[in-house]
């Protein structure tokens, strides 16, 4: 009987699956957010659904777990990688022709996480969390969102966050499939393009929402 150990490939598999799960979640979240562009009633209706639906209630802890696993694994892998690199650093680096995002996934992840905390504090804690705790949630989440996005500082931070996420996604998508082993010489470039398209669509759409309120297009 071999002693159980978590191989580097299995650790990356965990990174990959949790990452792909978060990639799918982003689409669901985006779908809900885009209803703000339709009408106040539509968005409030979606929020009410998200607060009360049983499936969503089951999925929220799973989602939180997805985040925790992804972040925990990233820290563990990064620490191991720093150790493997050794204490002596190269005098000159960064001359290889490789993508910036790929080299800086951990830093990008920290940036995304930092803004995520802010985001949870400003929105989630006042909306879904309240109803999960049995307290009456904000009756008009649309106004809460609209008011925050009319603040140029908040909208600015939000947009910076989304574009840090863009970099994270451009590397993350194809990299996740590479770690799963679903790749070959033909599909590596294709998946990179698909990942870029996904990142562009998601990040542009997420950027339109604060701009919509900031520019007063909702009135």
């Amino acid at each position: 009987m071999q002693r159980f150990y978590l191989s580097s490939i299995v650790k990356k598999l965990i990174m990959s699956i949790s990452g792909l799960f978060l990639i799918i979640f982003l689409l669901v979240h985006l779908g809900a957010n885009l209803t703000t562009l339709i009408s106040q009633e539509a968005y409030n209706e979606v929020c009410h659904f998200m607060d009360t639906n049983v499936l969503i209630r089951i999925m929220v802890p799973v989602l939180a777990l997805g985040f925790i696993i992804h972040i925990f694994m990233a820290c563990m892998l990064t620490l191991q990688n720093m150790k493997a690199r050794g204490s002596d650093r190269y005098a000159i680096t960064g001359k290889s022709n490789i993508s910036w995002a790929g080299k800086n996934m951990f830093v990008l992840g920290i940036i995304v996480l930092g803004f995520l905390a802010l985001h949870l504090m400003h929105f989630w804690s006042k909306m879904q969390l309240q109803s999960f705790m049995g307290v009456e949630a904000v009756t008009d989440p649309y106004t809460l969102v609209a008011d925050l996005f009319r603040n140029p500082l908040y909208s600015g931070i939000y947009i910076v966050w989304i574009w840090a996420l863009w970099f994270h996604l451009t590397h993350g998508f194809w990299s996740a499939l590479q770690s799963l082993g679903l790749n070959n010489n033909t599909w590596i470039p294709r998946l990179e393009v698909i990942g870029k398209i996904y990142a562009w669509i998601v990040c542009l759409a997420f950027t339109i929402i604060p701009l919509f309120f900031l520019l007063g297009l909702d009135k």
């Binding site: 580097s8 191991q80 990688n81 150790k83 490789i98 993508s99 080299k103 990299s175 590479q178 770690s179």
Partner: peptide, 14 residues
């Protein structure tokens, strides 16, 4: 490979 202290791949393509 893991036991010898090599790092984990992050697909940077370097």
């Amino acid at each position: 490979m893991d036991q010898l202290g090599f790092g984990n791949c992050t697909n940077t393509k370097a």
